[in-house]
Design a binder for these strands. Structure first.
Length: 952
RNA sequence: GGGGCUGUGUCGAAAUCGGUAGACGAGAAUCUCUUAAAAAGAUUUGCUCUUGCGAGCGUGUGGGUUCAAGUCCCACCAGCCCCA
């Protein structure tokens, strides 16, 4: 038999073989080695939903390629994996299918581990952690305790989505239009006592991103999320003499406050409401309870409110100011009370106009200078709120004080008023954050228990460390009604440290808590005495590169930062830092409380757009609205003959619909015809369905409907299953396509046709690397070119992988393959040079396509494993070109390209450009106004991308 | 509503510092080989005008800065994502 013909690239035969060998050899096992530089590469851990989808491949395989690249660059790389295994879907499975959340979750974890292995990633499975394991959540509970003891955890009131029907609290995503998404029952907002972490403790520190390399959009989003505003807290009193505080960023407008607004939930509301307004106020409060905070904060809806009948006294001028309630003031933001200055705040202005409240100017717009025309000169604050600079008026002794547009003390008016408020004891300078404390209580079963008991005397005790973890009882009834833990007597009833009866906390922790420290557990997942081993931590921490979805920009990533800072301040890194110092490593990055030194986000992979089947449905009309089909036939793309036949049938029977299936719900089809009309076709079981290409009797379920580009989801039927693609093309091809076909940071719709480019690439690499030339001597110029291209590719691939530009890295490799393949086919390479450049190319490809390169490496007779080889070293001299293209431009636009030696001077380049055919043509004998040379010089002074711009 | 992002050929995309717009791929077209198809190879492929040489236009829209703008600034339009 001929090897030339038989020996083609067959990924299915090599991938599982190498995966098994790597695992047996523990090739990717990462162990502490202080003699080598380390790199901790982390990628966000998946939720075990049960199926590894394309999104996981999209997130993880490029991250793996980057980790492999760092490994070849000489780093000792740790790249672990685990599962974020607590959460709502497990409870939903329990409710809908009667499966215990633990059973469902562990079955999914088992399945996903298998699927993850097919990626061929360098995961160190010996470090796996699963957050719903008692040995994991023991430490989640332990963290809670430490933070509680440090005063970072506390109990407070918060609004929750309460379902009176189900007697349970719902997550925001379970509430759609004020109703429970599962049962459609109404949901109300209710105050409940719950556990919080002092998130705002680190608000200021989290505004700083010094020393960490994070994407600009993430930094901006987090800064906005924290929402720091400078201003003052001012004490007002009700007429009855009760004090209440408001926060304002504009204390310089205090004299313009013509009404006050309290949040409907504010405790003062009940006491200031007059008998006459009682009914209206109560009705308004009930109405507000039915709305979510997002709805209430929405600025495009009309502002509503109700006068309470009560008045406050403005401390700055002793005026009597009416107190209103309005739902746009939130009890959870600031103090839940505001002063309203309609003249200088747009929202207050709209409110005052609607309810006929006085609008009083206290900042006067500057008068335009002589001769200056201002369109605003005739616009009064009665018509439009003015928030710009000016001078204080109607403000007593402050009249005339200039107010610029600055916030806080940079504004002289604000600074002067704050000083005066402090002096008078009316208020104080204050900073307010939009950020609120982190509510960690969840009223559900499948989460980490909160290790707290409530004693008979009303006090709280934490569970002693030696009794951790408080384990979730297995025998619970999960029905969706009530809280399963609260109904479990054996769990709830316990005793305190004195043996007296006590009740356990039945709330569990937010799953963001579990995912806020998992990369520490990876360091020593089986350690029993501590959450993580300081010896491991000293070497590996902090995480060098973290990759994951941009959708986690605020929540998860901020919780992670908060957690690291809280761990630092409760001394949890002290031992680790001491060990670092012993090894001469600076603990400053660890002690900065920043968990991830570098962050990169990938986008989302979407479902592919697909045309629906073109069908001919023949049947009878029902009520002239719906066709009840006898037969449904799919028209093949080039199936005019079939169509003609169908039309023939139609002519005989008289009832036919021809068009594309846009939608299918069970056996009801929505069909758009060529004229753009929409028809409904019902396909009863008795109907005959024929699909060319699928022999035998077909069913309505096999008909394809049109798919839009959108997120992949089972219910939309647009899921691209990575397992199927791996079976068809192999893991390397899927990995390479993910890296080549998309801008990784952007994502985009899947395209099953474009993958062909990668299929061809790997086939041709295989052919090139198995096509050893016979000759000992090659063509000198050809060999020089092969080596030059290899070195250019080394630089290209190295830079692109360093910067996470995976698509450019692959395109560099494809270009290299094209060049080498041509040279080898023309038999210009000697055996020796062929071997050298093929080896170089395989090494460059190894991070991206680990299996094919390992196989070809072995076939070249090179020592196992390619993944233990160093990344090739770039040689600028070998990469240098002898000549270069000089671009001649006229006023910045391309005129001509001329080939010039790469060692000429700037002036020579200018002269050549002016003398060129294009240069002569555009000058036509005249003198240029200016001639500008643009270009770089390589290591040996050779010109790189030279241009000459001739200005005329 | 708030916040963030993205708009470039038929499609996925590239252009690291403001300096040749469209690399690399997909698709399509023509040709070679073949009985034919597939595979492989060659050529072409932003638009418009032109037989050709060549010329003009072109990175969502409208302005601006600059010798030079996909890139920087201002305004607008459209789409996508996230939201305790």
């Amino acid at each position: 038999m001929s090897d030339q013909v038989q020996d083609k690239y067959q990924p299915q035969q090599i991938e599982s073989k190498w995966q098994a060998k790597w695992e047996t050899d523990r090739l990717y096992r990462a162990e502490v080695d202080w003699n080598r530089p380390k790199h901790y590469a982390l990628t966000m851990l998946p939720y075990p939903s049960g199926d590894l989808h394309m999104g996981h491949w999209f997130a993880m395989t490029p991250s793996d390629a980057r980790a492999r690249f760092m490994r070849m660059k000489g780093f000792n790389v740790l790249f672990p994996m685990g599962f974020d295994a607590f959460g709502l879907p497990a409870e939903n499975a329990a409710i809908s299918r009667g499966i215990h959340p633990a059973t469902w979750t562990y079955a999914n974890v088992e399945r996903m581990r298998k699927q993850l292995r097919t990626m061929g990633a360098m995961f160190d499975w010996e470090r796996e952690a699963v957050s719903c394991d008692p040995e994991y959540y023991r430490w989640t509970e332990w963290f809670f305790k430490r933070f509680y003891e440090a005063g970072l955890a506390f109990r407070g009131e918060a609004l929750v989505n309460w379902s009176p029907t189900l007697q349970t609290v719902l997550a925001n995503e379970q509430v759609i239009d004020g109703k429970d998404e599962r049962t459609g029952q109404p949901v109300v907002q209710k105050m409940m006592t719950q556990w919080f972490f002092r998130y705002t403790r680190y608000a200021d520190e989290m505004l700083s991103f010094d020393g960490i390399d994070w994407p600009e959009p993430v930094r901006i989003m987090q800064t906005n999320w924290i929402g720091k505003s400078e201003g003052a807290r001012v004490i007002f009193h009700t007429e009855a003499g009760e004090a209440f505080e408001i926060f304002t960023t504009r204390p310089d407008t205090l004299w313009g406050a013509t009404f006050m607004v309290l949040a409907p939930e504010h405790p003062l509301v009940e006491r200031v409401t007059s008998a006459a307004q009682k009914a209206a106020v109560e009705a308004y409060i009930a109405q507000a309870a039915r709305e979510t905070e997002i709805e209430r904060m929405s600025e495009d809806r009309e502002k509503t409110g109700v006068f309470t009948g009560g008045y406050a006294i403005n401390p700055v001028n002793g005026e009597r100011v009416p107190i209103w309630i309005a739902d746009y003031v939130l009890i959870t933001y600031g103090t839940g009370a505001i002063m309203a200055v309609p003249a200088h705040d747009e929202r207050d202005h709209a409110f005052a106009t609607k309810y006929g409240i006085e609008i009083r100017e206290v900042i006067r717009r500057p008068t335009p200078a002589e001769g200056e025309v201002s369109p605003f000169v005739d616009i009064s604050v009665q018509d439009m709120a003015y928030a710009g600079p000016g001078a204080m008026v109607n403000s007593g002794q402050f009249d005339g004080t200039p107010s610029n547009a600055e916030k806080g003390r940079k504004n002289p008016a604000i600074a002067a008023v704050i000083d005066w408020l402090v002096e008078k004891g009316y208020g104080r300078e204050a900073i307010n954050y939009r950020l609120r404390d982190w509510l960690i209580s969840r009223q559900r079963y499948w989460g980490s228990p909160i290790p707290v008991i409530f004693k008979d005397d009303g006090t709280i005790s934490v569970v002693p460390d030696d009794q951790l973890p408080v384990e979730l009882p297995r025998d619970v009834q999960i029905t969706g009604v009530g809280n399963p833990l609260a109904g479990h007597a054996a769990f709830v009833n316990t005793v305190d440290e004195n043996g007296k009866p006590a009740r356990r906390e039945t709330d569990t922790m937010d799953t963001f808590m579990c995912s806020s420290w998992y990369w520490y557990r990876y360091l020593s997942p089986k350690l029993s005495g501590k959450p993580f081993d300081p010896e491991e931590a000293a070497y590996w921490l902090p995480v060098d590169t973290y990759t994951g979805g941009a959708e986690h920009a605020t929540m998860h990533l901020m919780y992670a930062r908060w957690f690291a800072k809280a761990m630092r301040d409760t001394g949890m890194f002290d031992e680790t830092a001491a060990i670092m110092r012993q090894h001469g490593k600076d603990p400053a990055p660890l002690l900065s409380g920043e968990p991830f030194m570098q962050l990169r986000n990938q986008g989302q992979v979407l479902g592919e757009e697909r045309a629906g089947d073109m069908i001919v449905a023949v049947g009878e009309w029902e009520n002239n609205a719906k066709l009840i089909a006898h037969t449904v036939g799919v028209i093949p793309p080039s199936g005019d003959t079939q169509l003609a036949t169908s039309e023939h049938i139609a002519a005989r029977t008289g009832a036919v619909v021809i068009g594309e299936i846009m939608k299918r719900t069970e056996n009801i089809l929505t069909v758009d015809d060529a004229a753009g009309r929409t028809w409904t076709v019902e396909v009863p079981d008795s109907a005959r369905v024929t699909i060319p290409g699928i022999p035998g009797p077909n069913t309505v379920n096999q008909l394809h409907h049109h798919l839009e580009i959108q997120r992949m989801s089972k219910s939309k039927g647009n899921v691209v299953n990575p397992d199927d693609l791996v079976a068809q093309f192999g893991a390397d091809t899927v990995r390479a396509y993910i890296m080549f076909g998309f801008d990784w940071t952007k994502g985009g719709p899947w395209n099953s046709q474009n993958i062909q480019g990668v299929v061809r690439w790997l086939n041709e690499v295989w052919d090139l690397a198995t096509d050893e030339p016979d000759q000992e001597e090659g063509d000198a110029a050809g060999e020089r070119q092969a080596v030059r291209r290899l070195h250019q590719a080394i630089k290209g691939v190295e830079d692109r992988l360093e910067d996470f530009n995976f698509n450019r890295a692959v395109s560099e490799l494809m270009a290299l393959k094209n060049e080498l393949r041509t040279l080898n086919r023309e038999r210009k390479l000697s055996k020796k040079t062929w071997r050298e450049v093929v080896k170089g190319m395989l090494l460059l490809m190894a991070p991206i396509t680990p299996h094919i390169t390992e196989e070809l490496w072995a076939r070249l007779g090179e020592p196992y494993s390619i993944h233990n080889q160093p990344f090739p070293t770039y040689d600028a001299v070998l990469a240098a070109e002898d000549s270069t293209t000089l671009v001649v431009m006229k006023n910045g636009k391309l005129v001509e390209r001329i080939e010039v030696p790469s060692m000429i001077s700037d002036d020579e380049a200018k002269a050549l450009a002016l003398a060129s055919r294009g240069g002569q043509r555009i000058l036509s004998g005249k003198e240029p106004k200016n001639v500008i040379f643009i270009g770089k010089r390589g290591v040996n002074g050779q010109l790189i991308e030279p241009k000459v711009n001739i200005v005329i």
